[in-house]
Write a protein that binds this DNA or RNA. Structure first.
Lengths: 219, 219
DNA sequence: GCATCATTCAATAATTATGTTGAATGAACT
DNA sequence: AGTTCATTCAACATAATTATTGAATGATGC
């Protein structure tokens, strides 16, 4: 159909946005960018993908309005257009969690200790932090931690957690968080901590959701 | 990459859902299904597309978990999996409205009287309806009206509006609504009513949003 | 100016999505 | 049993997406 009415034209534009979200690599880029702005090179390193490939995906997302870019010296930094992009990602995740048998299978297979983990909600954690009853650890890599983290959180990247167990104060409970609701690292951190006798839980969401909820972030 | 970690596998599933939303025809089907369950034939007639084509799109959406189907006699009725699908659609629409220059262009070109139209919010309309100060007209086709509409609304399909102007009581104001926020029919209805001297406005959302907000629907 | 280096472009090949056509399926009814 | 008819399947052609490679761009700093 060559002649389109305005409604069809609008729907095509909505489809452009959805299409831009319809690729696992781009979703991973969004998760990374939700931590903070990044250069193409940094993103390529994180995802372990060729730079040209990442650049193309970023440009596709820019065309769709999901991200913006800004040159800084010889680097081009990309960032999420705004929080509505993360909201769209979240709503797609909800649909998948509710209706995809495959998601359920993956979660069962790899996150089977999930029910044991009794995730802590943002609100609950904020309350417990105020009482000083909890040690909060951020298991993301240091560069992501540096761009913002929960107030008072200590940065213990997952790879170093085992060696640094003695650093953790013997508060009643340890809460681990990372990039977002399905970020694997906090699951593994909690499992490891429990193996060593700590009382540990996950925060339900990651830093981006915490920030979007208007809660305080330390830089 | 043939070996995938659970995170990548999850992201692939999220991408499946987003991809299923990444097609204008499927989005139109979702808008239709948001009005109520429909058979393949009915949907094909609404969209003026071949039945086999619509069937394939519906099956793609079913695989992605967006819709469910149920046989009723010789018809197969499809319906949205749940309200999270409409929420995902809405969040994608928000991203497009905020960041797509093309969407802005379309809206300017075809909906340029939009600012004049001072849309009525659901809450405001609900209040005015209670006071009996407003005539509510549903400009959708009769079959969609029959599946549910605002309490007290009268069904005046857009094509019949001009002939039925005399039916409209001289209440202080007429409010028109249709399928959703970007449904063209309510815009055109308001423009036509104003040309004939009526004081008319649009409701901001459509019936599906009204229903999802928990407000009363008449069958 | 010239070299460096992050990013983008261009060209290719492989895969996947899309629309069309006509035939197959399968439930309902005679 | 056979007919009808809504839906689905199968096969094909076309278009779009994706990853990969190497070259081009363009800003920086010597």
């Amino acid at each position: 159909m060559s002649i389109r009415n305005p409604k069809q034209a609008l729907y095509e534009q909505f489809a452009v946005v959805a299409k831009a979200l319809g690729n696992p690599q781009r979703l991973e880029l969004i998760e990374q960018l939700a931590q903070g702005p990044r250069s193409v090179e940094a993103l390529a390193a994180k995802l372990a993908h060729p730079v040209a490939n990442v650049s193309q995906h970023l440009q596709a997302m820019r065309r769709a309005g999901l991200v913006t870019s800004e040159r800084d010296g010889k680097f081009v930094n990309y960032r999420l257009a705004d929080e509505s992009v993360l909201a769209a990602f979240a709503s797609i995740r909800v649909v998948a969690e509710r209706h995809s048998a495959e998601v359920e299978r993956i979660v069962r297979g790899y996150f089977d200790r999930r029910d044991d983990m009794e995730p802590v909600s943002r609100e609950e954690l904020a309350a417990r932090m105020k009482d000083g009853l909890v040690t909060v650890i951020d298991v993301r890599p240091p560069d992501e931690f540096a761009l913002g983290h929960l107030p008072g959180a200590i940065n213990v990247p997952l790879g170093q957690l085992e060696q640094r167990l003695s650093d953790l104060k013997a508060k009643p409970e340890i809460v681990a968080y990372c990039r977002g609701p399905w970020c694997v690292m906090s699951f593994e951190a909690v499992a490891l901590l429990r193996e060593h006798g700590f009382r540990a839980r996950r925060m339900e969401d990651g830093l981006p959701e915490w920030r979007d909820a208007g809660l305080a972030v330390e830089a």
